[in-house]
């Protein structure tokens, strides 16, 4: 029986990690600036490709993953500076611009790097409980997801930057008047968002097929999580991921993946119907 229980936890942790890691970057960008970043999947792909490239050069996996996240973050800052910055007053246009960017990046990768690159293999390690065997790496992913949440909590709640960022999010004009350098805060936030997307790609790179369009497999789930969560990363995205992971896991286990997917989307429609601004609207209000 304990094997069954552990198995349920493991499945939950797996879906949760996937949702958190793929959505965190998107949630920050959306929550801070109201920008829907359609190139989110391409930052994920970037993280994965950089990781694989570095590992093939002989860099240890963990370091490669960290470097990949940093690379994606830096590219994010550049993209913010060149494109997104000019579109803050037009959130829907930023959607279009980032979508254009995503088309350019995927196809250019295809032309430059080729249609597929060889994977690097998941780090060894598995364990058995009852009749089941589990991959240790999946638990590492879960740990990373939790670490990302803690890291975000510390960054946004305990640092000076966090205070500024939250002030900017509440009222950008007021924050600016009080001396916050909002432009810089936006750039850093976008960079963090892109870096987290890169981290997601870096962490999942060993477990997946590597093709230029790989980011697309993350996109629907991450959008759904962000939307259910609402604008607040900490009070929205995390509970949304818990909630969606439970629905998805339960349906996957008893009715198969297709019902899991359809059920999750239905849940989204219903939640938005009840809470038009996402889960965080309730939680934030309660918190006050």
């Amino acid at each position: 029986m304990s094997a069954e229980l552990f198995s349920v936890f493991y499945q939950f942790a797996d879906v949760f990690a996937f949702l958190i890691l793929s959505a965190a970057g998107l949630a920050i960008v959306f929550g801070m600036m109201g920008v829907i970043n359609m190139a989110h999947g391409e930052f994920i792909m970037c993280g994965a490709y950089v990781t694989v490239g570095l590992v093939k050069l002989g860099v240890p996996l963990a370091i490669a993953q960290a470097l990949a996240a940093v690379t994606a973050g830096l590219i994010g800052v550049a993209v913010e500076y060149l494109i997104v910055r000019r579109l803050y007053k037009r959130p829907l246009d930023s959607l279009l611009a980032t979508w254009g960017l995503s088309l350019i990046v995927t196809q250019s990768m295809l032309l430059i790097v080729g249609s597929s690159i060889t994977g690097i293999g998941t780090p060894e390690g598995s364990f058995a409980i009852g009749g089941y065997t589990f991959s240790t790496y999946r638990l590492v992913l879960f740990a990373c997801a939790v670490a990302v949440l803690i890291g975000l909590y510390v960054t946004f709640m305990k640092t000076r930057f966090g205070v500024m960022a939250r002030a900017t999010m509440q009222n950008a004009a007021m924050a600016k008047a009080l001396g916050a350098r909002t432009g810089r805060i936006y750039a850093i936030s976008f960079g963090i968002g892109a870096g987290l997307a890169g981290l997601c790609g870096a962490l999942y790179a060993p477990t997946m097929t590597l093709i230029p369009t790989m980011g697309a497999t993350f996109v629907v789930e991450s959008f759904v999580t962000v939307v259910v969560g609402g604008a607040n990363v900490l009070l929205g995205t995390a509970p949304a991921a818990v909630f969606l992971a439970m629905i998805r896991m339960a349906l996957n286990a008893s009715y198969g993946q297709i019902i899991g997917q359809i059920g999750m989307l239905f849940a989204v429609i219903l939640i938005i119907r009840v809470l038009p601004e996402g889960l965080s609207s309730v939680l934030v209000r309660r918190g006050r």
Partner: peptide, 20 residues
């Protein structure tokens, strides 16, 4: 051929940036 998607992306990006 293969450059099509790159061109379309550029067209979109340019439209948004230059002709809001």
């Amino acid at each position: 051929q293969q450059a099509a998607l790159v061109l379309m992306g550029t067209l979109l990006l340019a439209t948004v940036m230059l002709a809001p």
